[in-house]
């Protein structure tokens, strides 16, 4: 009994803290059309590229919703959606997304933007893959047993990489094939440090290029390297805590012309080229 009352006291104190935090938040938010909080589960690539820092404040301003951006691999983001732990998803693993859509776990799914994947390697390119077709580049890396660093974390990029090996009809089981189990940024740094090859989305690479000295883009431009992002709502039936209204508003926000043009122009000033290409405007 004593234990219980102690726990209660602790909880009480924490609740007081919670109360304080909430009242502060309310005081700062002016417009409150929808309000509440919304969990956006997304990939590390969209978050690390800084695009969401540009878009989300606009949405928060419009709707008075407090957006919590959780940046994880697409696999984990989709799992969060499947369990009703997020309200809206922005991910790049189309095949896996379709499975969830069929199950009914996600609804209102829209293709919103794309960029592309690139195969990166050391500048001196020991595997000689520069400008080769994807299949040949991969088989050259595998045959000569050059270091290849895979994300290995069920992210959209990892799924894409596995697809590419499969279509090249190679089992990525050669000795120098290693899984980092980490995000894109960390994997790129490891690859740069170890003079290896890897697959990355172009955005994250451009964003980190300055600190990744010897890495350069060796293979790009192939149709199979397209990196497609979809935004979708988590089915509100999955949990009674889902902020469906905010989720729906976020999807509408993302497909709107003005949002799409922010996407189109994002990054041009800083990197000389856009990081993402909007799908719904030219």
């Amino acid at each position: 009994m004593k234990q219980v009352s102690k726990c209660m006291m602790g909880m009480l104190a924490l609740t007081v803290l919670a109360g304080c935090a909430n009242s502060e938040e309310n005081a700062s938010g002016e417009s409150d059309d929808i309000g509440g909080q919304m969990i956006l589960a997304t990939t590390t690539s969209t978050y690390d590229s800084g695009l969401l820092d540009e878009l989300v404040p606009v949405f928060e301003e419009e709707t008075g919703t407090d957006v919590k951006i959780i940046s994880v691999g697409s696999g984990q983001a989709l799992a969060m959606g499947e369990n009703g732990e997020a309200d809206v998803l922005l991910v790049h693993a189309p095949a896996q997304e379709e499975v969830l859509e069929e199950e009914g776990a996600v609804i209102n799914r829209h293709r919103v933007m794309h960029n592309d994947f690139v195969i990166l390697g050391p500048e001196d390119d020991p595997a000689n893959i520069n400008s080769l077709p994807v299949d040949e580049a991969l088989s050259s890396i595998a045959e000569d047993n050059h270091s290849f660093y895979s994300r290995g974390d069920d992210s959209g990029t990892h799924f894409k990489e596995l697809d590419l090996w499969e279509s090249a009809q190679i089992e990525p089981e050669f000795e120098a094939y290693e899984e980092t189990g980490q995000g894109m940024g960390d994997t790129l740094r490891i690859t740069a440090e170890k003079d290896g090859y890897t697959l990355s989305d172009r955005g994250t690479f451009l964003y980190l290029k300055d600190v990744l000295d010897p890495l350069s883009i060796l293979v790009d431009g192939d149709q199979s390297l397209e990196n497609i992002y979809h935004v979708m709502q988590v089915n509100p039936d999955l949990s009674d805590q889902i902020n469906a209204e905010a989720g729906e508003a976020f999807v509408s926000f993302f497909v709107r012309d003005d949002t799409q043009s922010i996407i189109k122009n994002y990054g041009i000033d800083e990197w000389g080229e856009p990081l993402f290409f909007p799908h719904l405007i030219d």
């Binding site: 602790g10 369990n83 889902i242």
Partner: peptide, 24 residues
């Protein structure tokens, strides 16, 4: 603290309260 977890009702995940709880 998951929405589907026993304390999901509190909506504490991804808040400072959750950090305090874990640190305790």
């Amino acid at each position: 603290l998951w929405r589907s977890g026993p304390l999901g009702e509190w909506q504490w995940l991804f808040t400072t309260n959750a950090i305090v709880l874990a640190q305790i």
